[in-house]
Design a binder for these strands. Structure first.
Length: 282
DNA sequence: GAGGTTGTTTAGAA
DNA sequence: CTTCTAAACAACCT
């Protein structure tokens, strides 16, 4: 029934990609910066991915948060002594709950609380109902981070055209695969890569290296516009001018030309594309 | 009640 | 080296 889906959609449909993490980063810059950790409550030890509960507490308590950063889908929370690295997985979410809002937490907070870091004036919370995300702690900010995140390409938000061209060069995979490969470009997931291909009017199965100079430029413009716009919103918009708005529809129509959308399998993911707007032979 | 869905890691194959 | 597939992880949906 559509009712339960609508009721759940606020938490269950929003799969975290770059825009969601960027929204979290912006929000935490305002609420968390400069605050000191008072204590830690680990509600689910599985979220701590490289430390035991007691190690985590000992290392984090007393630390003062610096300016939050982000690379791709990774949220980076530096403090004066350690750095926290958070990945949302499929359903993860990081947010600050001000002390004054604690009373309304049952209705205001998403389900699946895993970790609460109490600071002066409120709490930093990590919720993740499916527990595919996690929290890592690193001793030296900037040094051992790559060992945790794995190789990450340049962040998708604000990538220059010249860099983008270089990244695509000599790549045999499809456009969509390449966009989703975190070691090539960091931050794009299944939805955003579909959205970008659709806006660039390029078939997701086109080989990345086969794009003409003009097509590469179109793809770059779509990448830049889409990531900027979605990041401002803090999520991928589901408004009628976005491909995402057709994502859960049963017979899905292209928001632009109303043609029936097609679904195919690319690198184990369901790609959504318009056969009229995105021809496979240009 | 089986199958699909999401992101990442890992193993294995082409 | 590059790329893809499938499984695993978890929990919800149809």
């Amino acid at each position: 029934m559509h009712q339960s889906r609508d009721a759940n959609s606020a938490w269950s449909v929003a799969v975290p990609e770059l825009p969601d993490v960027e929204g979290q980063r912006r929000s935490l810059t305002i609420s968390l910066l400069g605050r000191t950790v008072l204590d830690v409550t680990v509600l689910d030890p599985r979220v701590l991915r490289n430390a035991t509960q007691s190690e985590f507490e000992q290392r984090l308590i007393g630390c003062r948060f610096g300016p939050p950063a982000r690379h791709g889908k990774w949220l980076i929370l530096p403090t004066d002594r350690v750095t926290l690295l958070l990945h949302n997985g499929m359903t993860g979410r990081v947010y600050f709950l001000a002390a004054g809002a604690l009373g309304s937490e049952t209705t205001a907070s998403p389900p699946g609380n895993r970790l609460i870091v109490r600071v002066e004036g409120g709490q930093l919370r990590f919720t993740d109902r499916r527990a595919l995300g996690g929290v890592w702690i690193a001793d030296h900010p900037g040094v051992d981070i790559v060992a945790i995140t794995g190789l990450q390409g340049p962040d998708a938000l604000g990538i220059p055209l010249g860099v983008f061209q270089t990244l695509l060069r000599g790549r045999r995979a499809t456009v969509k695969s390449t966009l989703m490969d975190q070691s090539v470009i960091a931050g794009l997931g299944n939805m955003l890569s579909d959205e970008i291909c659709w806006r660039a009017r390029l078939h997701p199965s086109r080989a990345a290296a086969s794009l003409s100079a003009e097509e590469t430029q179109k793809l770059h413009r779509a990448l830049r516009w889409t990531t900027r716009r979605a990041s401002e919103c803090g999520l991928i918009p589901r408004t009628p001018t976005w491909l995402s708005s057709a994502r859960d529809k049963d017979p899905a129509a292209c928001p632009r030309c109303k043609a029936g959308l097609r679904r195919s399998r690319i690198r184990g993911r369901t790609a959504l594309w318009c056969p009229r707007c995105q021809p496979d032979n240009p």
